[in-house]
Write a protein that binds this DNA or RNA. Sequence first.
DNA 1: GCTAGATTGGACCCGAAGGTCCACTTCTGT
DNA 2: ACAGAAGTGGACCTTCGGGTCCAATCTAGC
Lengths: 202, 202
Amino acid sequence: MPGELTPKGRATRARIVEGAAEVLRDRGVALTTLDDIRLHTGTSKSQLFHYFPAGKDALLLAVAQYEADRVLDDQMPELGCLDSWEAWHRWRDVVVERYEAQGDHCPLSTLFLQIGRQEPGARALVVELLRKWQERLAVGIRALQGNGLLPTSLDVDRAAAAMLAAVQGGVSIMLSTGSSAHLRAALDWGIVQLRAAGQFAA
Amino acid sequence: MPGELTPKGRATRARIVEGAAEVLRDRGVALTTLDDIRLHTGTSKSQLFHYFPAGKDALLLAVAQYEADRVLDDQMPELGCLDSWEAWHRWRDVVVERYEAQGDHCPLSTLFLQIGRQEPGARALVVELLRKWQERLAVGIRALQGNGLLPTSLDVDRAAAAMLAAVQGGVSIMLSTGSSAHLRAALDWGIVQLRAAGQFAA
DNA sequence: GCTAGATTGGACCCGAAGGTCCACTTCTGT
DNA sequence: ACAGAAGTGGACCTTCGGGTCCAATCTAGC
């Protein structure tokens, strides 16, 4: 239960979430049972329900939160300072690398399609993640404007939204086809076009 | 069984696939059982297995094929003739409208995340759909080039890939958040940038 | 060390859902 | 008309997996 956790309890709970995340990553939500998680985390059924009395969906939601937190962290040094074209290209490389390493398993997309509709918190979680992500991109674009690399007339939020959609689309296609070509193309195109917009208007 | 179907048998099979598609669209893959499909199509268990001896996954795959065929058909008059900027904007409107009407249920994405990994044919199916889609976009871009609206120096395949990723990303975000804002932004941005590229190079 | 509460182990329950079977009906060809 | 195959209905089986329960053990404060 929440609030009354001893250090030991907290450690066990964390072990469950992290272990469950691992299992879910390589087996997929649809094929993962509580027994798999139990085995992989070295716990028992009662512990799973002790820490997640609401059941499996609540556990999946906790894992989703855990994974969502990692998404931005994984891009973090680069995503945090997009104030030059070189920085944008570095960021692109990090994103491509991260998703290529992850292969065709996006823990979040599968998690959400499983619990998204039922658990009310799930949608809020992903909305928040996307909002933060887009905000970071917008900050980066404004930084470019500040450095005189882009005209101030540019619609920043629209551009950031488009860039976010490009990333998501690239990832989505990668999950379906196994190839990162579209992710690369979308990011390159997005950045190149942003640059062109700068040169065109300047 | 394949090959030896009477007209009646073919009709029943079609009824099953179409009915199953309807159920899957509004209930989601995860929550749809064979019994739901049986009820909604007015059939019996034995018929389901008579026409899909391999079981549920095979049926889902058939539904996926059925849905995949509809995706391009639904955009069809517009997607087929993208030879002017007006045509591109009309196409954008159709895409946005189609997905807004569909709401937050993408039959394909859920289907693939369910059966994608197990059924070998599923991935090939979506790859083929994406390939056709991108090819249509490339044809449209080449038509613009042919009409002198875009420079021939433009990398058509890359641009088409980026545009496809934009659509997919917009749809993907729409499924997660329920808002079509990103889909609109991504499409508008893509087209506007394409136009700008034309003006810039011209 | 003793008691209360947190933690853990694992046996058990039960409903749901995919899949099987067989009897019955309807169609097709000769 | 009749034989055989295609098509249909629905009862039944089996497995699997989420969830429950209770007894045993550990930890912390007094």
